[in-house]
Each structure stands twice: as structure tokens, then as C-alpha cells.
């Protein structure tokens, strides 16, 4: 039985007050185990991105609990939360968020170096991450010297470099063509299979289909779960 690495328990998030009050999440619960990829699908404004930012400790829930490994995020002090985020949680965004003045390997090693790891050791870990994404040869290039698909693979390598165990991705292939998207999701899936817990927010059904479970969110609530625990014969595939 794989360990639960990320858990949201009855999370509510409200923005504004009085007439301007908006309920972005209305009691969302979720568990993600090691080696499991969960996709969150929903229309714009359904709360899927809010759920991801709360899961990653970038926002605090109004009520409810968020547990990453064995820590309850809302109870952590800001410095503890920052450390946990840096060491445990990796993010992948649609627009890559690479630093243009740093080389590929420097971008990937940066979170480790910020965390006090010696430069040589951090670069070694960064190179390992790049090699696992099959882009080790790009280590010394700058972001503007590589393609969009390669940049996103760099961003994924950065998201799981070092000891991180939770990977959160928000429309990671939104800016990529179909062929490149598949290479990127295949690489991301490979990392998840190696024992990381992943949450993927997307409106792209083809991408969500790579997940073990697909949760549909509507008006801030998870209203449905679609799982692939079925045999292909059941659908004549």
C-alpha cells in the first residue's frame, strides 16, 4: 500500500467579504499516494487552480486542512512552510518560469542551492534530473536557446530535483503542440511512476487521461471521480 503524500481535508477557500464574497472552494477533499497521478478537470472558474495553489502551500485555506507528508500546512510558521515547499513540493506552470539569465543546469540546481546545498552537489543532482528527462545535453544552454518542449522538460526536471516528493502541475502543456505535449506528459508520468505523488490541473482530456484518477471540480466542489481501474475489454478497446 503506497503512502499518502498529499491530503486535502474538507478545504474551503473564500475570497472577499459580504456582497463580494466568492467561494472558490466549498469543501474539497483529496488524497494522493506515492506513484499516483491525479488529474483535476473543470471549467474556468471552477476552483481547480485554487485547489492546486492551496495544495502547494502558496495560499492558505479559509477552513480545512492540507497535509503534505506528515505536516499540516496551515499550522506551520512561514519559514517552516517555505522550507517544506522548497524541499518537498515541485511546481510546473504553463509558462515554464525559467530564469533567462541562468543556464538550464543553473535553473534546475537553483532551488537546491537556495536550500544551502553545495554548488557541485546541487549541479550533480540537477544533471541527474535533466538526464532522466532525456535532455542532459542541454545543460549548458540558456532557456532562449532551446525549444518550448525542451523548456518545459527543464521546468519538470526543476520541479522534482532533490528530495521532492509532490509534483503539482498547472496546464503544463498548455503552450505546446500535440506531439511535444505527449513527450512532456510521458516524461512527467515517468517521474510519478518512480514514487512521486502528482496533481495535474488541466482542461485537456487527452492529458488528463494519463492520470490514474480524474476528478471533476464544479463550483468549488469535487463532483465526480473517473478512474481507469477497469479492463480494456469492458470498453471493447
Amino acid at each position: 500500500m503506497s503512502k499518502v503524500l498529499l491530503e486535502l481535508i474538507d478545504v474551503q477557500k473564500t475570497y472577499g467579504t459580504g456582497e463580494n464574497e466568492v467561494h472558490a472552494l466549498r469543501g474539497a477533499s483529496l488524497q494522493v499516494k506515492a506513484g499516483e497521478l491525479v488529474a483535476i478537470m473543470g471549467a474556468s472558474g471552477s476552483g481547480k487552480s485554487t485547489l492546486l495553489t492551496i495544495a502547494g502551500g502558496l495560499e492558505v485555506p479559509t477552513t480545512g486542512d492540507v497535509r503534505v507528508l506528515d505536516s499540516s500546512l496551515p499550522t506551520l510558521k512561514p519559514t517552516q512552510l517555505a522550507t517544506l515547499r522548497r524541499q518537498t513540493i515541485g511546481y510546473v506552470f504553463q509558462d515554464f518560469n525559467l530564469i533567462p539569465s541562468l543556464t538550464v543546469i543553473e535553473n534546475v540546481a537553483l532551488p537546491l542551492e537556495l536550500d544551502g546545498m553545495k554548488v557541485r552537489k546541487a549541479r550533480k543532482a540537477a544533471l541527474d534530473a535533466l538526464v532522466s528527462m532525456e535532455i542532459g545535453e542541454l545543460a549548458n544552454r540558456f532557456p532562449d536557446e532551446i525549444s518550448g518542449g525542451q523548456r518545459q522538460r527543464v521546468a519538470i526536471a526543476r520541479s522534482f530535483v532533490g528530495p521532492r516528493q509532490v509534483l503539482l502541475a498547472d496546464e503544463p502543456t498548455g503552450a505546446l503542440d500535440s506531439k511535444t505535449s505527449e513527450a512532456v506528459i510521458r516524461a512527467l508520468r515517468k517521474r510519478i511512476d518512480a514514487g512521486i505523488a502528482g496533481v495535474l490541473v488541466t482542461h485537456d482530456a487527452k492529458l488528463a487521461a494519463w492520470a490514474d484518477r480524474i476528478l471533476v471540480i464544479r463550483d468549488g466542489q469535487i463532483v465526480e471521480e473517473i478512474s481507469n481501474n477497469i479492463t480494456p475489454e469492458q470498453f471493447g478497446a
Partner: peptide
């Protein structure tokens, strides 16, 4: 929608 999404999942899992 649910049925088609499941079929898509199965096809993708097989392709993986």
C-alpha cells in the same frame, strides 16, 4: 462524457 473519458483513459494506459 464519463464513458468516453474512461475509454480515453484505457487507450492512453495501453499506449503508455
Amino acid at each position: 462524457r464519463v464513458q468516453t473519458m474512461r475509454t480515453l483513459q484505457v487507450l492512453t494506459a495501453t499506449k503508455r
